[in-house]
């Protein structure tokens, strides 16, 4: 890498200029909180770390520990602590979210144990909450999102309106990671689907 210099411009999200906060849809004027709340989580930091079959155990153990899980993460599980979160999205691939590779997750893992790639700009992160969050997601996702089947901490990749997306249920709500180029198109279908319940964009 060339000598790094302070970045002087703001990141511009895929929804820039198309994202309007407020209450919309049916009963937009109702007093209680909206049935669906949508929020774009800006300035995503997402690094993918990929282990090798023979280093998997070590990498999984270290990375899981770095983000608060004593056991190595199982398929489509996640762990979070103050430092960030880690999601196991493929057998050998983990996503580190909300942290930078300069931190402990990376420090603990030897160079020949895994490879890292920055995906921070590749996804648009939408947080969906509210009583009808799952109803909205299930308009598109063929996933079983019942409480008993998709608990806090669970992760699933699937297709939403023909686009491959990853859904993560964090403490905050349902986090949808959409490939950036499709973010606006999917945003549009999501708010169309949300309008019948009334939704708030924050």
């Amino acid at each position: 890498m060339a000598a790094s210099k302070q970045i002087q411009v703001e990141r511009q999200s895929a929804l820039h200029g198309h994202y309007e906060a407020g209450l919309f849809g049916l009963q937009a004027d109702r007093e209680q909180s909206a049935a669906i709340v949508l929020q774009e989580v800006l300035n995503l930091s997402l690094w993918q770390v990929a282990a090798w079959p023979d280093t998997y155990k070590s990498v999984a153990t270290k990375i899981s520990k770095a983000y608060g899980s004593k056991k190595p993460l199982g398929p489509n599980k996640s762990a979070s602590n103050a430092g960030g979160s880690v999601l196991r999205v493929e057998p050998l691939k983990f996503w580190v979210i909300g942290d930078t590779p300069a931190n402990k997750g990376k420090d603990a893992i030897a160079v020949d144990e895994a490879v890292w790639v920055d995906q921070s700009h590749s996804r648009t992160q939408l947080r969906i909450t509210g009583e009808h969050a799952v109803t909205l997601l299930n308009q598109f996702l063929p996933l079983d999102l019942r409480e008993s089947q998709f608990a806090v901490g669970d992760v699933a990749s699937s297709a939403l309106h023909h686009v491959g997306v990853t859904l993560w249920r964090s403490q905050e709500g349902y986090e949808l990671f959409i490939p950036r180029g499709f973010a606006l198109a999917l945003w549009e279908v999501l708010i169309e689907g949300a309008a019948q319940y009334g939704y708030e964009v924050i």
């Binding site: 895929a14 700009h121 308009q139 309106h161 023909h162 686009v163 950036r180 180029g181 499709f182 606006l184 198109a185 999917l186 549009e188 279908v189 169309e192 689907g193």
Partner: peptide
């Protein structure tokens, strides 16, 4: 369903 009109296919936009 919603695969109709402008959303017949998902539009992919460059950054």
């Amino acid at each position: 369903g919603r695969s109709f009109g402008a959303h017949f296919r998902p539009l992919r936009r460059t950054a």
